[in-house]
Design a protein around this nucleic acid. Structure first.
Lengths: 206, 206
DNA sequence: TAGATTGTTAATCGATTAACAATC
DNA sequence: TAGATTGTTAATCGATTAACAATC
């Protein structure tokens, strides 16, 4: 099946499967089944098998899936069998937390560039990275072929930053600013806004 | 239509509508239409009208929607026309960032409790809140009737924290630890894992 | 072999969209 | 009135699930 024919919603679940497989592996398990995975994730086993079937046959009847090899397949499919450079724009509290976050390693990403526009922050070091001026961002990201970025600026600055990122050749943006971005169709955007998640839950309370 | 009959996916979009309305309002606009909202959000106008129709009739033919009153309706529907107390467990970099984040105010939430298990952190003040020992968490949250919590501990501690929160009467958990939690069906859980979002995007790159 | 689980088909279920009467 | 937009219906589209032959 052609890559573009596969539903977005299926792609959205693959990283969840990959994460669950990684945990099982860390616990020393070598084999799993669609039923076990489904039970852990609250997803039907049929759905897991169907999702995987878009990409090939990875299991063995009567046995299930080899965790190591299914993980490798999913990493390859998702393009996280490499390390993507990631730019982080807006080094406030959240930006600092992400810059120090250990969870990117071994999952396909490494933060390689930090940008801010505050002259007091420019030149500071976080981890082993220097905070750079957002003014020169476009040239730097182009030169270093950075295609993935995260925006952790205030809402008011986010659209301008996104425009710059697009100009710099960035094609995937994870936006923490609580605002919908307008970008060309060729650029992917995902959003993280904790308040949206909280609001979705308290609807069901009371 | 009964509250429980409304699809989760519809509930999931209401906070997005509310956020967009808030922005329009901040720009001084008083009226909008399903077409304008849809254009901004990349959602069809029919879907917006259908979603809203689950809850009542909020628009005026030929005119559209009054932004202030539709916002008020959505706040009421989502139960964010009040201020929910929120406990934050795990005061690392991310916990600190969330504790200092200004984005909760006026959107239905206020962080009222901070917990950590590190004796060096307990007693520290962030903003106007003291970091409390996670040992006493259950009693404190019960006494203060806290029903919403965010987990920002390492993955290894998250399930135990979730169990404690459930015991304390918490019914909505936003989990930043990269692990699927197991909780009773009556407790809502949402997840934030930036790596999942990044993985969903780079699938489409190359 | 007996038991278990896959991959796939067909049926079911649910969500989205197009279209339009109603009406401001 | 003429133009615009809602709320709703029916049709379309797409996703999930149940079931099972294949087979390890």
């Amino acid at each position: 099946m052609a890559r573009s024919d596969i539903p977005d919603i299926v792609i959205g679940r693959l990283p969840i499967y990959l994460r669950a497989l990684t945990h099982l592996r860390q616990e020393g398990q070598e084999i799993t089944s669609s039923h076990e995975l489904g039970r852990q994730l609250g997803i039907s086993s049929a759905q897991i098998r169907k999702d995987l079937s878009h990409f090939g046959e990875f299991g063995k009847q009567g046995t299930g899936y080899n965790i190591a090899s299914l993980s490798a397949e999913l990493q390859r499919i998702l393009h996280v069998d490499r390390e993507w450079k990631v730019a982080l724009v807006g080094i406030g509290d959240l930006g600092r937390a992400l810059a120090n976050y250990g969870g990117f390693a071994h999952r396909g990403f490494r933060i390689t560039h930090l940008f801010d526009r505050d002259p007091n922050k420019i030149g500071q070091i976080i981890g082993n990275l220097e905070i750079l001026a957002v003014d020169g961002m476009r040239a730097v990201l182009r030169a270093d072929r950075v295609e993935v970025a995260m925006i952790t600026t205030p809402a008011g600055a986010a659209q301008a930053v996104a425009d710059e990122l697009v100009e710099a050749g960035v094609r995937a943006i994870l936006n923490y600013a609580p605002i919908a971005l307008s970008v060309p169709a060729s650029v992917r955007v995902q959003y993280i806004d904790p308040v949206l998640h909280l609001q979705r839950m308290v609807y069901y309370l009371e």
